[in-house]
Design a protein around this nucleic acid. Structure first.
Lengths: 201, 201
DNA sequence: AAAATTTGCTAACGAACGTTAGGAAACATA
DNA sequence: TATGTTTCCTAACGTTCGTTAGCAAATTTT
C-alpha cells in the first residue's frame, strides 16, 4: 500500500488548506464552504474540528510569531559575537521561518488585520517588538563601527522590507534553497550597510 | 466661509474613501454599506455614481500602473545616461508614485487578486513587464561593469521588495519627504550593488 | 459485543452581501 | 416658472456568509 503523503489529522488538513486559501484569496475572501469543498466535506462539518474561522487565522499568526522570536533569540543570544554577524544570523533565521511554510508567512504578513481585538493589537505589539530587535542590532552595529548608515531605523525598514517581500516570489521548487536565499539576502543587505567602504557621493 | 478641503465630486469622494477602506480592511472585507456610511449616505445611492464595487478596485489598479510605467519611461528614455543613474531615477520615480497616494499604492500591491478575469491576468502581465524593465537595467549595469551582482534577477527582486514594502511604513506626515525617501532608498540599494568596492568574503 | 465518542451530512438560522428599481427631493437648465 | 436631470432614500432582491443543532454513521474505547 504505497502512501504518498503522510497521514494527517483532519484538523491539520483543515489548517493546511485554510492557510493555502487564506494566502491566495485572503481571509475575508475565503469562505468556509469553499474550504470544506477543497477538503471533500461539508462546511458544517468543519466545526467538529475547529471553533471558528478566526481561530484558524489566529493560530497561523501567533505560531509563526513564536518561530520568529525563537530564531531571533538563537541568533543573538550568544555573547561576544560581532553585531554584524548577529545581524546576519538574524536575517538568515528570518528567511528560514518565512520559507518554512510560505503560504503561512504570506498570511502572517498580510491577513492579521482580520483578527478581532484584543488579538489584533497584541499581534501588532509583538511585531513591533521583533522589529525593534533588528533596529537595536543595526544601531549597535553603527555604534561599534561595524555598520554604517545615517539612519538606523530607516535602514532597518529597508532590510526588513527586502525580507518580508519574499513570500511574493519564493517558490519551494525554485533553484535556490532557503539557506542559499538567506545567505544571498544577508550578503546583499549587509553589503549595503558595510562600514569598510565609503560610497561615492 | 472657510472651506478647508477642496470641493470634490461625489465620485471622487467615493473613490478616495473606498481606497482608504480597501487599504485598511481589504477589498473583500469592505462592504458597500460601510463605504456609504463613511460618506454619509446609503449604500444604494453609490450606484448613481459608480457601476460596481469592482470598478473602484479596477481604477485604482490600472491608473497606478499607468503612473508607474510613465515614471519608468521618463527615467530611462534618455539615451546615453549611465545605467546606474537610470536605475537611480527609476527607483526614485517608483517611490514618488508610491508616496503620491499611499493607500492606493497598498491596494495596488495587494488587492489585485480580487479583480475578475480577464483584468486580473492583464494586471499581472503589466506588473511583470514593469519588473522586467528593472531587471534589464540591473543586467545592463552588470554588463557595463557599473553594477555587480552574482544574480541580477535576485538582486532586482530584493530591490523591488525594499521599494514595495514602503506603504506599510510610510506616513505622509513623517519627517522624510518622498524625494528624501527615494534618495535614501536609491543610495542604500545602489550601494549594495556598487561595482567599485569588493565585498569581504 | 456494547458503549462511548467522534465525524460528517443536512437543514436551517440570523446576518450580511452587492445590487436594482421606484420615487421623492434637490439641483440645473431653458 | 416649467422642465429635465441628477442624487439620494428606501425597500427589496437573490445570494452568500459563519455557524448551530440534530441525527446517523463511523470509529474508538471498554
Amino acid at each position: 500500500m504505497p502512501t504518498k503523503s503522510p497521514v494527517r489529522s483532519r484538523k491539520a488538513q483543515i489548517e493546511q488548506k485554510a492557510t493555502a486559501l487564506f494566502r491566495t484569496r485572503g481571509f475575508a475572501g475565503t469562505s468556509m464552504r469553499e474550504l470544506a469543498t477543497e477538503l471533500g466535506m461539508e462546511a458544517g462539518s468543519l466545526y467538529s474540528h475547529i471553533r471558528s474561522k478566526e481561530e484558524l487565522l489566529h493560530r497561523i499568526c501567533f505560531e509563526l510569531a513564536e518561530l520568529f522570536f525563537a530564531g531571533f533569540s538563537a541568533a543573538t543570544q550568544e555573547a561576544g559575537r560581532p553585531v554584524s554577524f548577529q545581524l546576519r544570523l538574524a536575517i538568515e533565521s528570518h528567511v528560514r521561518v518565512l520559507t518554512r511554510d510560505v503560504a503561512a508567512s504570506a498570511v502572517f504578513l498580510h491577513e492579521w488585520r482580520h483578527l478581532s481585538e484584543p488579538a489584533r493589537t497584541e499581534f501588532l505589539a509583538l511585531r513591533e517588538q521583533y522589529e525593534a530587535g533588528f533596529r537595536r542590532l543595526v544601531q549597535q552595529g553603527t555604534a561599534t563601527g561595524e555598520l554604517t548608515t545615517p539612519d538606523p531605523a530607516f535602514a532597518t525598514l529597508t532590510l526588513l522590507a527586502s525580507l518580508n517581500w519574499l513570500p511574493t516570489w519564493y517558490r519551494p521548487d525554485g533553484t535556490l534553497t532557503p539557506d542559499e536565499i538567506g545567505h544571498r539576502l544577508a550578503e546583499q543587505l549587509l553589503r549595503g550597510l558595510a562600514a569598510k567602504e565609503q560610497p561615492s557621493n
